[in-house]
Design a protein around this nucleic acid. Sequence first.
RNA 1: GCCCCCAUCGUCUAGAGGCCUAGGACGCCACCCUUUCAAGGUGGAGAUCAGGGGUUCGAAUCCCCUUGGGGGCACCA
Length: 493
Amino acid sequence: MTTTSPKAVRVRMAPSPTGPLHIGTARTSLYNFLVARHTGGTFVLRIEDTDVARGNEAYEREIIEGLHWLGLSWDEGPQVAGGDDIGPFGPYRQSQRMDRYAAEAERLLAAGSAYRCYCTPDELEAERREQQARREAPRYSGRCRKLSEEEREAFETEGRTSAIRFAVPPEKVVFDDIIRGRVEFDNALLGDFVIVRTDGMPLYNFVAVIDDAAMAISHVLRGEEHLSNTPKQIALYEALGYDVPLFGHVPLILNPDRSKMSKRKTQTAVSAYRGLGYLPEALVNFLAFLGWSPGTEEEIFSLDELASRFEIEKVHKAGAVFDADRLDYLNGTYVRSLGDEQLALRLRPFVPAVIDDAAIIRLVPLVRERLVRLADVVELASFLWEPDAVVASRYEAELLAPKGGGPAEAALALSRAREMVAELDAADFSADVLEDRFRAAAAELGIKPADLFKPNRVALTGRTVSPPLFASMELLGRDRCLARIDEALAKLQ
RNA sequence: GCCCCCAUCGUCUAGAGGCCUAGGACGCCACCCUUUCAAGGUGGAGAUCAGGGGUUCGAAUCCCCUUGGGGGCACCA
């Protein structure tokens, strides 16, 4: 990394368990992971669960599971099973660090860098409305900042509870963002923001600073939506007497309309992609290239290869649209690159139990080149496990007919096939033999092979599109082929 | 409204002053292969580098302005 820091590289991901693992969080985590692996640094996982109202343990589990699934392993973080934390800077769950936050709030209070605010939500709301009416920026006036001792006591005896606000120094803040370059803000434009709520819960901008400092984070790499939080946090670092880390704000992932990627417009849950059968290596590869490129024409990279090439300084400034077509393409590429056993293993969760492991391996060659997502195996191969009646329920006379033909041509093709299948014993019932026989029959009948094949494809699978016919027949077996051809013939009566 | 950020084919991007009459990939369109669908192969359309000013012998690349887009302005993270 060219931005040399005297300290060792320590980066972190800090997801909040208020929802499923988001694609954007996954990509930011990936970038942090890649920086750590590229530099030999340390990757820390910290759970930001201070918002008890929205937080949820199930989400925490889901996020951790999703991160594992993607292969983003961390060096320090909370123990998953609820046991001890891993690493010297724990606990790594903010809900377990409350005493530290309280102590730091006290320090700030004592130093006069923070003060108690007794304003009620109604009062604040009224203040905001007035400001808006005057077309001013909505921000806290700071009136509790200069409360006298008597006024404070009056509020206390009145029974009012207080929040703690940070007295923002009205100065310009300049920092060199690793990705964006020099960025300037004027903190004089900011109101004093709350760092500890009335109910005692500390807030994000405050705890993130304390923890990043306590955990010796050297590079804070996060989403662009945090860019405007940075000057507030820098002011906090300084008031608290901490070293200010380096910041890098990665561009947003966008909906097709170029707004920030959101659930309403794009699927944002990593688990949803997993459920559809996207491979983690494909998703990682795809995400890595959303806002970064190694500058080569090569585009398929494993996590290790990405780690060796990744440079945070080369991450783009502009947002990138999430292009589902490209993800599909990459996924297909990864699926096709898998060996029989590997692909069978990945397919296992998508295929019913009646299809045993050995049968999945036999199925793999039929579907490999046709799968975009693993879940597509159902559409492609369900005829193998569907009862004959279900397949037959899809028959229609027009579907059964060969191109340009009618029921008569369909019946001819079907009955000829029935004869051939019937005279083959189980031992000879292979794709090769079937293909030879069928082609010979087509020649004998004086029809195009395709016209003999199509009615049988529909009869056997209930679909006009299927994996190669003869290999499908082999997997189906002689008896089921006969039964289905008979059903189709009956449909034509 | 205020603050901040951004800007190369529809999309992801290469490009760090001359190698650019802008390269690759996805998607799209043809054709080839082919029992359907895919996969694969070949070819094609597609970006006056948002617009306008500079700087320079020379700008997609540097500077300024405009326009457009986005993000943020919580007792959420």
